[in-house]
């Protein structure tokens, strides 16, 4: 039988935990809002790059044969980049990426292809290292607030590996952001880049009427083909950046949800414990009365 004191102590400690999870929930909510804004901030830039690419492609009449657009004849080695977070306590956020990545790796290996891992976020890096996987690239320390420079560093490493024929395909796994309550694991092929991706109208396309009126008279410095040579790799950088931003928003969303249910659980636990404490108190009172009555009877 627990005494009143024991139960009281437990209630106090659960209340403390609840305070912490509440605070973490609030912090995550604030960071989530900022992360959502950063996804929005990327749209005008990505849209402008798309418009510029289409304009240059029109002037060049065709897209030059860039190595990142060319499929390798044999796919022997596949690079998998897993986007995770630096911190845990976010529900299934990190583990579902690792699970998807490892399953894809097993599939590739079953078909005779080698797998090279890349990872961003401490959780992914340490889990893969723990499983004995060798990492070709590890990127940590920015998942709370990824910058474009971080995305460029990752994209450059992946593109170099592809162009230098160290890998023949690159896939990226990340938590796509749908809403604060919903995130989904996305698996995308980054390289080879599909020409169709470049020329199709993106969802960030807003027709703001800023199209140049006299396209034929535009002067290109240097030629449009040279400009395309640099524009096309930007798509890979932007894709990686968007994956990092969505992953960050998803992480805060997942943490917010996880912490909310932790707070709710703590609340339920406190109710149960309070009931238990009342029962313990009642038992003690009953005990005392019995003793008094027994004592009185003995005297009579």
């Amino acid at each position: 039988m627990q005494t009143q004191r024991d139960v009281k102590d437990r209630i106090a400690s659960v209340k403390n935990v609840q305070k912490i999870t509440r605070a973490m929930e609030m912090v995550a909510a604030a960071r989530l809002r900022r992360a959502e804004q950063r996804i929005e901030s990327l749209r005008p830039y990505a849209g402008a790059i798309r418009r510029m690419t289409r304009q240059a492609a029109q002037a060049a009449e065709n897209i030059p044969n860039l190595p990142i657009l060319e499929e390798h004849e044999h796919v022997r080695t596949v690079a998998l980049h897993l986007v995770t977070g630096d911190r845990g306590l976010a529900g299934a956020f990190n583990s579902q990426i690792l699970r998807a990545g490892l399953r894809a790796a097993a599939d590739h290996e079953a078909e005779g292809r080698q797998v090279v891992f890349y990872a961003s976020g401490r959780r992914g890096v340490s889990s893969l290292a723990f499983r004995g996987k060798e990492l070709a690239g590890r990127y940590v320390g920015f998942t709370d607030r990824p910058g474009y420079a971080d995305a460029r560093e990752i994209a450059e490493a992946l593109m170099s590996a592809y162009v230098d024929e160290k890998v023949d395909e690159v896939e990226i796994f990340y938590n796509g952001y749908i809403s604060p309550l919903r995130q989904e694991v996305r698996r995308e092929t980054l390289l080879p880049l599909q020409q169709a991706t470049i020329l199709e109208a993106g969802d960030e396309e807003e027709d703001d009427g800023e199209r140049p009126e006299h396209q034929a008279l535009v002067e290109y410095e240097p030629g449009p083909e040279e400009i395309l040579r640099r524009l096309v790799p930007d798509y890979v950088e932007i894709s990686v950046f968007r994956a990092l931003l969505e992953s960050t928003a998803s992480e805060h969303g997942a943490r917010m949800t996880a912490m909310r249910s932790a707070s709710d659980n703590a609340g339920e636990l406190i109710e149960d414990l309070t009931l238990e404490m009342n029962r313990a108190r009642q038992a003690e009172i009953t005990q005392e009365i019995m003793e008094v009555v027994a004592g009185a009877e003995a005297q009579a």
Partner: peptide, 19 residues
């Protein structure tokens, strides 16, 4: 600066696309 060299843009510059 563009890849071609330094550039100073004034109003009513002709249409250009540069790196």
């Amino acid at each position: 600066r563009t890849t071609v060299g330094s550039i100073g843009l004034l109003a009513n510059h002709e249409p250009v696309l540069a790196m």
